[in-house]
Design a binder for these strands. Structure first.
Lengths: 262, 262
DNA sequence: CGAGGTTACTTTACGTCGTAAGGAGTCGCA
DNA sequence: TGCGACTCCTTACGACGTAAAGTAACCTCG
């Protein structure tokens, strides 16, 4: 299930996102939980089990039943929105422009990438219906602030912001989801991949002849240990990081071109 | 639920993807269905209801129960894989290079975009664990074939292929998922958006002051009816198309820069 | 032609999910 | 002291994917 952001009452969710818990106690027993604690628990559970976490699991982590959560949060969708926005709060809200826009954007992209790596489930939250939380705004504001300094018109910047955003998300997905799925089935990513391609080659032996250009792409490899490679990480992951770096470079070259032109 | 590609027996799914139905009949009643018909029905249902379609719905469309499908297909994950690959078959497998690589890539991106628009659920199929079907290969092969003609080394092209792919997917998602979600709740995208931003402005009146750079981005609009705008489409969608065009332009400028450089 | 095995499809059922409904206990305030 | 508001629980419903077992159609072999 892909969670579409905020299908419930818009006012309720947006208030939760922007105002936090409004603590005006009247009567009744003391709340043992809080929206914050539930969001934290939700993030912890989702980090472990992915986006298919259950309300029951979140409740259990807090020593409550699933239904207890509904006192604080209207439903799972809204909880996911809150978790999403909380996660975005991990990211810096501004970047130094001392060295120009390019290092700043690069840093933004890497921070984003790492945040996605820590919380892969975030990548499953629908893009199309933005959560519209304060921290999500802040993250995009940070990127926008960097890019506005190029002097490009907003018309052009919108496409660029989108492109950078999509690129980082997509690239992170390639790594992060693989890890998550591996965890879910207990199957490591590498093994999954090798099992797959072995079967594929067995069934379709002349694969390379059928798709020669893919073969060209795959085969021009760096020496196994480039100075950038992290020996801690599995091969596939270093590969993905390398593609991330070079893809981002090209994308930013394009931006640079736009800046240089009239 | 995000559907991870092929968590079942790898051999079985890959055989289904590459060999199709192996028709060697022996005995027993005549099959009333086929893998093909099930995949078609699945696509039709998913086009209507999104990725959260149910096996029961697919069965019903074929006049069968959900369990009847399991005679032909190992499970829902595998069915989604097949649906995904079938969808990719709608796309061209090669592009003319007569006018150079750039118009070809642009065409590829637009074809991809339109395919995603027709079948928004495709965007929910996990990127990380590629389906590894023949038509998915063919689509990437087509893009690779175009880009190899630039003469760039494979090392660099991998990042570029990724960047273009991610960009198109992300941009399509922004439009397509919005439409799909609107359909699911019976709420049109425009209305959803306006309701949301109205509440947001009510709760957070000085939003523009808190995020001034986003304001800059949003406000440099073209005149409402540019020659590219499609009056049939809602405003938000034309906007997204415009951002798609300009983002792609910047990205390809970057590629051009890489081609020009040593 | 008839028996037996194979196959297509159905019925039933299990365990999961999100969450609606209603009740039990706890506290602040009249 | 009691009322109303509040938290949290139990129970239950209808969805989901799919396992297990049953029924009936059909081919092949005697």
């Amino acid at each position: 299930m892909v969670v579409y952001a905020g299908q419930g009452d818009p006012r309720r969710s947006i208030e939760l996102l922007w105002r936090g818990t409004v603590a005006e106690k009247r009567s009744g027993p003391k709340p043992g939980l809080s929206v914050d604690s539930i969001v934290d628990a939700g993030i912890a559970v989702a980090d472990e089990q992915g986006m298919a976490f259950s309300m029951r699991a979140v409740g259990e982590r807090l020593g409550r039943t699933a239904m207890a959560l509904y006192t604080y949060v209207p439903g799972k969708n809204e909880l996911v929105d809150l978790m999403y926005d909380r996660t975005m709060a991990e990211l810096p809200t501004s970047y130094s422009l001392d060295d120009g826009w390019r290092p700043a954007v690069t840093q933004w992209a890497h921070d984003m990438w790492e945040c996605y790596s820590r919380h892969p489930w975030v990548l499953q939250v629908s893009q199309a219906r933005p959560v519209l939380g304060p921290h999500e705004f802040a993250v995009i504001e940070a990127l926008a602030a960097i890019l506005v300094s190029t002097g490009l018109p907003g018309r052009e910047l919108r496409g660029i912001v989108g492109a950078i955003n999509y690129f980082v998300r997509g690239a992170a997905q390639t790594v992060a989801e693989a890890r998550a799925a591996g965890g879910a089935t207990g199957e490591a990513d590498e093994e999954w991949w090798y099992a797959r391609s072995a079967v594929l080659l067995e069934i379709e032996p002349d694969l390379e002849k059928k798709f020669p250009m893919l073969h060209v792409l795959e085969n021009d490899r760096e020496p196994a240990t480039s100075d950038l490679a992290d020996p801690e990480l599995p091969y596939l992951e270093n590969d993905a990081v390398e593609n991330f770096r070079s893809g981002l470079r090209v994308l930013l070259d394009g931006v640079e071109g736009a800046v240089a032109k009239p």
